[in-house]
Amino acid sequence: MTEKLTVQVTAGPANAIGKPPVTVIEPTRGWLPIDLRELWEFRDLLYFFTWRDIKVRYKQTFLGFAWAVIQPFLAMVIFTVFFGLLAKLPSDGIPYPIFAYAALLPWTLFSESLTRSTSSMVMNANILKKVYFPRVALPISSVLSPLLDFGIAFTILILMMGYYAITPTFNVIWLPALILLTLVTSLGIGLWTSALNAMYRDFQYVVPFIVQIWMYASPVVYSASMIPEQYRFLYGLNPMAGVIEGFRWALLGSEAPGSVMVVSVVISILILISGAFFFRRMEKTFADEV
């Protein structure tokens, strides 16, 4: 039997590489960067994880994708009644409903992305224990999948802008960058919390609570202009402050978030980089710890 099995170079799949790849397996130590090239090779898996999360999310629901609109819309109605009409919070001269909704959009995207990525390791424990792939694909896909909800909810904003006859400024071209900043922020934090949650399930309870508090620390129901000028810089330490103010600026033409935005971008990139290193360091223990 030994001899008749000759070496055979299989034609292989379309993507087979000419030279056989060598996989080296040895213990890793210290802080290593995420292997981006490998992640790129697994891009199809990233796609399928995202696609699965989207497909599964509203299965067996009666209202389906309407939920993507219902949640931010109802929040907007409630905020308008309590904070806009009763508390009469200033809204930079913009009608309160659209003022709140323009903030709720990125905020919902952020909170969904963060909550889902936090639980992504634990939710996929059975897969983690049975097959190898770059683990970071899970938090990334969890961050990407709420984008569809965001897109659906965005149509309501367009309708509202029509209703209030608000024409977007030229700054609207910055919107994709702002969405990216939202995702970068939630991924950065999600890398930390998903790795921590694999070890300590407490984060499953901590994160939703923090998200709730965080919303009031971000200019969702109020305007950042309420913050005294000298503290704006500090306020930017909350990256979502920059994102939300940026959304209002790009869509509704409110005041440009100068220093807040700069601080937010820097902070959010720092969180992403530190999160990536932390995740990479914890990654090897996931299959044993989850």
Partner: peptide, 22 residues
């Protein structure tokens, strides 16, 4: 599990030459 890279070894080394499926 070590050879399929699900978990990391504590010591030692393994090399696999070719596309691996587990």
């Amino acid at each position: 599990k070590i050879l399929s890279r699900i978990t990391e070894p504590t010591e030692g080394r393994a090399e696999i030459y070719g596309r691996v499926g587990s």
